[in-house]
Design a binder for these strands. Structure first.
Length: 266
DNA sequence: ACCTATGTTATCGC
DNA sequence: GGCGATAACATAGG
């Protein structure tokens, strides 16, 4: 499930479970997950070191491992972290296993192998290299408006563009547009300033609430779209049914009654 | 067998 | 340079 709120949840989980413990060993079960770093280099940077602090930008999680090195985790569509007891088996899709001196392990899971593990000297340089925009919870209203106006295309694909703001994915853009009552296919240049401001406000509200419930859609308020995000489900506002369509190659769920196709003249 | 799935990246054509 | 469409990556579930 990893979009910004889930990554933030992983970050806090890592902080609570794994910080400041001496690392005894690092194992990688599928080397494909390593990007720009060898297992030998990664193990060299981690062994006998510890995780000192964490930082998140969009969907990327950086872990300070000391000596000026940062391990950067990306989770793809199916990644997560598990802290397991010495007696417990590793989770089934553990691709990297960090063992601490106390015998506990932190598993980096990635079922579909779409996530990557990096080792960098400077997280900010990586953010530049990946052309990530400001984090979706850090950007201010004016900067958001300015960046949004400078893009074209459908609002849903623009919000998912990590170079505009970093952190939004397919499900939370649906929720934000539902809350803002804007059709996902609306061209950005058809939005007026009030629409853009509403999107900004709803973006913050939705992301904060999702972090509160640790990214579990079923714990989102029943009045939100996410617990009802399936084709034919009843709109939580009682306005009709949830529809699915295809926007920029991804499924978009929305309520046509609440989110009418908007023109310039609304 | 077919379609779908929370992400990113590359390619092609306009 | 930007945009949409498409496929690819790898794996599972309906």
């Amino acid at each position: 499930m990893p979009e910004l709120p889930e990554i933030e949840t992983f970050r806090r989980y890592l902080d609570h479970t794994s910080l400041r413990q001496k690392i005894r060993d690092v194992a990688v079960t599928r080397e494909r997950i390593l990007k720009g770093v060898s297992l030998r280099q990664l193990a060299g940077a981690l062994k006998n070191h510890s995780f000192r602090k964490t930082e998140r930008h969009g969907k990327y999680l950086a872990v300070d491992v000391g000596d000026g090195k940062q391990m950067v985790l990306h989770f793809g569509m199916t990644g997560c972290l598990h802290y397991v007891d010495p007696d417990d088996p590793d989770s089934r899709y553990a691709r990297m296993i960090v063992t601490f001196d106390n015998g506990h392990r932190l598993d980096y899971d990635n079922k579909r192998m779409l996530g990557r593990v990096r080792l960098v000297d400077d997280f900010d340089d990586l953010i530049d290299e990946l052309e990530l925009g400001p984090d979706a919870l850090e950007i201010g209203a004016d900067a958001f408006d300015e960046r949004l106006r400078s893009h074209g295309g459908a609002i849903k694909s623009t919000l998912m563009n990590q170079s505009l703001v970093a952190g939004l994915g397919n499900t939370y853009t649906d929720e934000i547009l539902f809350q803002a009552r804007i059709h996902p296919a609306t061209p950005v240049d058809a939005l007026n300033p009030a629409d853009r401001k509403r999107i900004y406000r709803m973006m913050r509200k939705v992301l904060r609430k999702a972090i509160d419930v640790q990214g579990e859609p079923d714990r989102m308020p029943r009045s939100y779209l996410l617990p009802h995000r399936s084709d034919g489900a009843a709109c939580p506002r009682g306005n009709g049914t949830v529809h699915r369509s295809r926007v920029a190659g991804r499924s978009a769920y929305y309520c046509p009654a609440c989110q009418p196709r908007a023109g310039r003249k609304r």
